[in-house]
Design a protein around this nucleic acid. Structure first.
Lengths: 227, 227
DNA sequence: CGACACTTTGAAGACGATCAACGCCGGTGG
DNA sequence: CCACCGGCGTTGATCGTCTTCAAAGTGTCG
């Protein structure tokens, strides 16, 4: 979004605070607001009648919530959004977004871009689920975090609980834990919440051969060239 | 799309024929065209360096191909598209779509809607993969086909090969075959290519309790009320 | 210190993938 | 007309992986 958009946004909405585990909205609620996270982490998830949960995405400051639902033709939320810790989020009426789209074609264009990208990622994740072992899923996730930290040789701390990450990857916590020890032999070291990568190229090969978009993946490119 | 759009479309493009197994485009090809299927079936799939394939979607006449890729910022295709049988498809330059979007905001709006919907479906499918057994996946797929045929008590013929469907569902052909016999006890009868549903409500319950959007699913609603 | 959330580890079990063999059918060629 | 072949689907047996259940370990915070 442009600086101008941001300015408009700040005028149209108000910051709103959510405590840990608060729901920003739940499945079935009418869609009334659009959110932009200022601080904290929000978990999007779906829940079926058996109580099984599937975490769809983990959102960080700067990311927006439920733009796609507002743009879809439905009037109610399809999923739940919960504050993982304390969260501060800008809250705007849904109508504001709809009007903005009508008035600023450039915004519509940006949103198209963003949503296309998300759809693409969703497909790639489905592919990963089908073709990768749980250890590879964990390695892929970790690698991308690591690139986000500039491949710092000191390593970094996991930004979320392992329970949350496991849920995001569609595996059980126990499986995550076992996967974490298994990928040590591929150069990825997870000790408690601290992560470091010894052999980025080895790790990349272990994972990215099983990913159809490795050649376009920025994380993969960074890892490979760092040799 | 509106009738007017269709008219423009017919003027801007030319129909193009593809033989069985022809690629409409492949991963890495520059994005030059946009397609609308007139006749036949097209398979979208991704392939990793190990040769593992994942079928993303099966497209039928009337559906468009790669609108999302054109709207994404990338210049090359992220996936492959192959003709399952003989295919006739309208082929338009990608620039046509981009211009149309700039000129007709309503089209942008429709595309936003369509892509949001696809993203939503991709997420639901990920959820299904995580929470359903292979038998339930097959049942879900079959149910929706069945509703598409108006719940005809005579049943209907599968429109695709079982190999293709299995690949679409992310399971092996053998698993599909075993699942097909297992779901007979839940009122779904698959004999060769012929499918009939004896107990729609039983089948719906067997599957839809594991789906977070059962209450919004049109197929589920049809099945439930048919008792 | 004790309660609680989070994580690790072990053992058993279920499920789907894989390998292998066979049946069915349509097409091709002698 | 029959023999052969290849694509497709079914069925059986085995194996590896992930889930599940259970127990114990670690850490933080009141």
């Amino acid at each position: 979004m442009s600086a101008q958009d941001t300015k408009n946004l700040l005028q149209a909405g108000h910051p709103h605070h959510f405590a840990k585990n608060d729901l920003l909205f739940a499945h079935g609620d009418p869609i009334t607001h659009f959110y932009v996270i200022i601080q904290g982490v929000v978990k999007l998830f779906r829940e079926n009648q058996n109580g099984q949960e599937k975490t769809i995405d983990i959102l960080n400051p700067g990311q927006s919530i439920c733009a796609n639902e507002i743009l879809d033709s439905c009037s109610c939320h399809w999923m739940n959004a919960a504050a993982v810790g304390d969260v501060l989020a800008m809250r705007l009426p849904a109508s504001w977004l709809k009007e903005a789209i009508e008035n600023y074609p450039i915004l519509a264009r940006n949103l198209l871009n963003m949503i296309s990208e998300k759809e693409n990622l969703a497909e790639v994740e489905a592919e990963h689920q089908a073709n990768m072992s749980s250890a590879q899923l964990v390695a892929c996730f970790t690698q991308r975090l690591c690139v986000g930290h500039g491949l710092n040789p000191e390593g970094f701390e996991l930004p979320y609980s392992k329970t949350l990450i496991a849920s995001r990857l569609g595996i059980e916590l126990e499986t995550f834990s076992r996967a974490a020890s298994k990928i040590r032999e591929h150069g990825i070291n997870i000790q408690g919440a601290h992560v470091s990568i010894n052999k980025p190229d080895a790790a990349a090969q272990y994972v990215c051969d099983f990913c159809s978009i490795a050649s376009e993946c920025t994380a993969h490119q960074e890892l490979s060239k760092s040799n």
